[in-house]
Amino acid sequence: MTTKQPFNKVKTPRESRVHERYLRHSKKFPNVWCAGCGIGIVMGSIIRAIDDLQLDKNDIAMISGIGCTGRMPVYVDFNTMHTTHGRALAFATGLKMVRPEMKIIVVMGDGDALAIGGNHFIHAARRNIGLTTIVVNNTTYGMTGGQYSPTTPTDAIASTAPYGHIEQPFPIAELAAVSGAAFVARSTVYHVRELEKYIAQAIEKEGFTVVEAVSYCHTTLGRINRWGTAPDMMRRLKEQSVTRRQADGMSEEEKQGLIVRGVFVDRAVPEYTQLYDHIIERAEAEVA
């Protein structure tokens, strides 16, 4: 029997140190996500990005809507809020207006962000209010069992599209870009370091920022379409994605069905709560 080393002598790998620091000790684990799901990878990327940026946990809020991704805030040791379906950005807008100094991260799935919450998504982007939005795009409604979502590929089979899906998917990053976001990037849960880097950039940037993280669901849409196991999903992300630079050299036909990764927008636009501070100055001057 070996004697235990004093705790502080144990060399802990970065992962455990970060987990120790940012995951809630009072919350019962394991989490709700299926084994092999990419949402946990996104959560890991977010907390590592926050660790890199050395932010104070008290200054961070994580706000979500409903769905598999909506369950993320309960596990992390920030100011957390699990709101109603589609409305996370609207809740976050109110919080940001009265706590502009806080870093607010909004995590949503594709259905949450773009179907029921689509209007809030484009308007938050148009206002350029300082919120970091992470959309975990699994191209389906996972929690309810594989119905088609606003990002389900055309022709895929879904539990509500048993004869094939006849609608076109929303390109999330492109939609955020034209709606006015200050920073927009897309990566996948296979490209973890890249994802982490984009999330850190998004959190640091002032204004409305969006990171789309593609993460297929092997339990629902993947199973229905016989796309394979969780590792097969990862392989799919690796093989069927290209960087923006690679995509630039490709024809539209060649790009069909591929995930294009990279930073789509990084621009200086005045942030909403800072603009509103000027409104307060003007109004106070009018009274005085």
Partner: peptide
């Protein structure tokens, strides 16, 4: 602070968010 939201659902959501703040 005042904000005109995109609809009434967003309005009450923002109000609750602000109250949490």
């Amino acid at each position: 602070r005042f904000i005109q939201m995109e609809d009434e659902i967003a309005s009450i959501a923002a109000v609750i968010g602000a109250a949490v703040g």
